[in-house]
Write a protein that binds this DNA or RNA. Structure first.
Ligand code: ATP
Length: 757
DNA sequence: GTAAGCCGACTTTTT
DNA sequence: GTCGGCTTAC
């Protein structure tokens, strides 16, 4: 332990503040020093919530209120966890290593390994990824003769996961909770899915938390052990916790009550994953006597950026409401720029990046933040052309690539013989002549004997159920796995991996492949071996793969960052580019269709998160046309643009576009260049309608412009720009009466609604 | 049992 | 325009 801190002054000593308290304003310091009892730091973006948490960790440890391993600190992403550990380490040294700091899932996995047997698992359980989950569920659907066309596995899995997010195990559900889904059998399918996971000695992501909560609820002695252990609990991004996470925290904190959560209801962007804004809204009821600290000074952004974000988010209802101010003077307005299409957008952003670079701004302080992962693509292409180094966060992750997963499946099967999903994945990769028929035989044997596939395979090989060729192939495969399992004792993980890739013929398979991707895949296999080298044991590596989906990139080169708005939460950049602000893209149409007004508000929070990532410069772009599903569509500027304060934005449009817009909502988007004058609007409509322009233009905008109103039937589901989804109650020519889910009964023109799913 | 080729879905967001 | 899943032909 580091003793150089022992003679630090007591907290509260007026002079000579310890360094970790120096960079804090009075309310922040208040939050750090209120160590006992529940504390909620409720504050807007950039007010130093995360700084409070790191300082609090340092404070607790340096004042010896707790040893590092007696503190539980929870973050949302692995990156946030890493960053927090680094920052605390900078203040307190290597002791930071011993803090129980990580994501909900990583911490839950660590606890579950210790007590797995209490929920019928072995401590070696595998953690399944989405791919495995889906394959498992599909098998169950097949066995139950559920029509997958009608009930896509993805959809059903989604429902099951939402149940898990809410802490609902199958026994807590009644048959009716599944509704009509899958012929009313969804709850039963869920039960089968869970039963199957136990046989496979496996967990999915949701189970990690669900199981540990079950254990805490059913084994008070185990819970008591952790009450003694964890004296302080700290939670980042509390607004995005779901019900299980909340239950878990409450169980752990109920004894000491020393829980400090930080969050911002305006940054809640994970409702689609089961996050409950309610958790933060009712914190003081869950933890009576909670101290609520509000932080109001924003240290990150300039005044115009803050004003833009604040004005936008004010359009949401049911907010807790927060004040935000800055003492920063000046600052450029938020630039809002209209362009013709996606490639012009990419070109302009690329040019601006280069121009900023020439002015001495580093690429590392810039980011392009998009609504959906696929949108990074056009920028990648442009940046590649310009030779601007970039990195993409998220997207297709290293450990999710097919060849990497295959290789890992070999390791999984060696570590955990019951891992059927790994078994199936590689039993015939590379081709060994074990096809569908053989696999079905194995499955039947496994189901019959209640065994995992590999165990059943031994029995089958000993019998004469398979044709000689297949029997030989299966037997050879089992022997190989056994041998590698023996080798695993003596070799390093990297050596083992290399040997497996070599001896299994997996590398050879890709070497023989002459498709253009093959070299890249071989390269990834080499990269995998490098990744494995960093781990001491096979289980440690596999745990990492399951929980940390990204591979830490170690480039020294300055790069611009491309990522989704979701991934950007908690980060900050001098310059932020926000492309794709068009109706349907952002706010995302599906979000609107599926969750109506709630979805819109979450989209708006996402926009708020986006703008508030910027310290000095924010650029918002919207394109008039985009190719979506290989079809050209004309798009209206996002309604969020009309929600920005005129005084703090600087509107412009690319040549040939000026004035060519109409407001996308009834709230007039009346910026300088967007006069919305009839003549401009007509010219725009004419341009769209002109067949000579080539690309097929479809979509709502056309319908609005040409005045064609489709016929609607009573009872039909429709979508309206402003009111969301609803059901037609009366159809009178082009006048409709619609009962909207969020907005109630309204009279609308047929031209302003469209058919909804 | 395997490979090629066709068809349809896909673009939300992540631990 | 691309990917994955399924069918078909060998
Ligand atoms: N008291 C302070 N004095 C000066 N700068 C500060 C202070 N507190 C925080 N900052 C700086 O303000 C910025 C935002 O801090 P931080 O990331 O902790 O905010 P946050 O509330 O977690 O933001 P968000 O919710 O947007 O993620 C950081 O650059 C941080 O260094």
């Amino acid at each position: 332990m580091n003793d150089s801190f022992t003679d630090l002054p007591e907290p509260g000593t007026p002079d000579a503040l310890p360094p970790y308290l120096m960079g804090l304003n009075p309310p922040q310091r208040d939050a750090v020093e209120a160590t006992e009892g529940p504390v909620l730091v409720l504050a807007g973006a950039g007010t130093g919530k995360t700084r409070v948490l790191t300082s609090r960790l340092a404070h607790l440890i340096l004042t010896r209120r707790a040893q590092p391993w007696q503190i539980l600190a929870v973050t949302f992403t692995n990156r946030a966890a890493r960053e927090m550990r680094d920052r605390v380490a900078a203040q307190i040294g290597p002791m930071a290593q011993d803090i129980w700091l990580g994501t909900f899932h990583a911490l839950a996995a660590r606890l579950l390994r210790r007590h797995a047997e209490l929920v019928g698992l072995k401590s070696t359980f595998s953690i399944l990824d989405t791919d495995d989950q889906l394959r498992l569920l599909k098998q169950i659907l097949q066995a139950n003769a559920v029509d997958e066309k009608r009930w896509p596995a993805k959809l059903l899995l989604g429902t099951i996961e939402r149940w898990k997010d809410r802490g609902l195990t199958p026994d807590k559900l009644s048959i009716d909770d599944g509704g009509e889904t899958a012929g009313g059998r969804l709850v039963d399918l869920y039960r089968q899915y869970q039963d199957r996971l136990k046989i496979l000695n496996a967990c999915d992501f949701g189970d990690l938390l669900l199981h540990i909560v079950t254990i805490f609820q059913q084994h008070p002695d185990v819970l008591a052990e952790y009450h003694r252990k964890f004296r302080y609990i700290l939670v980042d991004e509390y607004q995005d916790t779901n019900v299980v996470q909340y239950l878990w925290l409450r169980l752990l904190a109920q004894q000491s009550k020393n829980i400090c959560c930080v969050g911002d209801d305006d940054q809640s962007i994970y409702a689609w994953r089961g996050a409950e804004i309610d958790n933060i809204l009712k914190f003081d009821k869950d933890f009576p006597g909670a101290k609520i600290v509000r932080l109001e000074q924003n240290y990150r952004s300039t005044a115009p950026i803050l004003a833009a974000a604040g004005h936008l988010i004010a359009h949401n209802e049911g907010r807790l409401g927060k004040t935000l101010w800055t003492d920063k003077d000046g600052g450029a307005p938020v630039k809002v720029r209209g362009v013709w299409d996606g490639s012009e957008e990419a070109r302009e952003i690329g040019d601006e990046i280069e121009s900023l670079q020439r002015d001495g701004h580093g690429l590392g302080s810039m980011a392009i933040l998009v609504r959906a992962g696929f949108q990074t693509r056009e920028f990648e292409e442009r940046l590649l052309t310009l030779g601007v180094p970039y990195r993409v966060i998220g997207g297709l992750r290293f450990y999710e690539r097919a060849e990497v997963r295959d290789a890992i499946a070999y390791l999984r099967l060696i570590a955990q013989p019951d891992d059927d999903l790994a078994f199936e994945r590689i039993v015939n990769v590379p081709r060994r002549g074990i096809g569908d028929v053989a696999l079905q035989t194995l499955h039947r044997a496994a189901r019959g004997a209640g065994l995992s596939l590999s165990l059943a395979a031994y029995e089958v090989v000993a019998s004469d159920e398979l044709k000689p060729a297949a029997r030989k192939a299966v037997s050879g495969f089992l022997t190989a796995i056994d041998r590698w399992r023996q080798l695993a004792q003596g070799l390093s993980v990297a050596e083992l991996t290399e040997q497996i890739l070599d001896e299994s013929g997996y590398t050879a398979m890709w070497q023989a492949d002459k498709s253009p991707e093959a070299p890249g895949r071989l390269e990834n296999l080499k990269e995998l071996v490098r990744a494995v080298e960093e781990f001491e044991s096979l289980p440690a590596f596999l745990e990492h793969v399951s929980l940390v989906t990204e591979r830490a990139e170690n480039s020294q080169e300055e790069q611009i960052t491309l990522m989704t708005l979701h991934a950007a939460k908690g980060l900050e950049f001098d310059t932020v580019f926000l492309p794709g602000w068009e109706e349907g893209v952002f706010p995302n149409q599906r979000s609107l269709d599926e969750t109506g007004a709630r979805g819109l508000e979450e989209e708006r929070r996402l926009a708020y998160v986006g703008i508030t990532r910027a310290k000095a410069r924010a650029y918002i772009f919207h394109a008039a046309n985009r190719r979506i599903h290989n079809q050209w569509q004309s798009l209206l500027p996002s309604r969020f643009l009309s929600e920005l304060p005129q005084a703090d934005i600087d509107l412009s449009a690319a040549t040939g576009l000026a004035g060519a817009y109409r407001a996308s909502s009834t709230e007039t988007y009346s910026g300088a260049s967007y006069g919305g004058g009839e003549s401009n609007g007509d010219r725009w409509a004419a341009r769209r309608a002109a067949p000579s322009r080539g690309p097929v233009i479809e979509g709502r905008a056309t319908r609005l412009a040409t005045g064609q109103s489709p016929r609607f039937q009573v009872g039909e589901r429709v979508f309206h720009q402003k009111f969301g989804t609803g059901t037609v109650e009366i159809a009178d020519g082009d006048k409709l009466q619609v009962s909207f889910e969020a907005a109630g009964v309204k009279h609308v023109m047929a031209a302003f609604v469209e058919k909804s799913a």
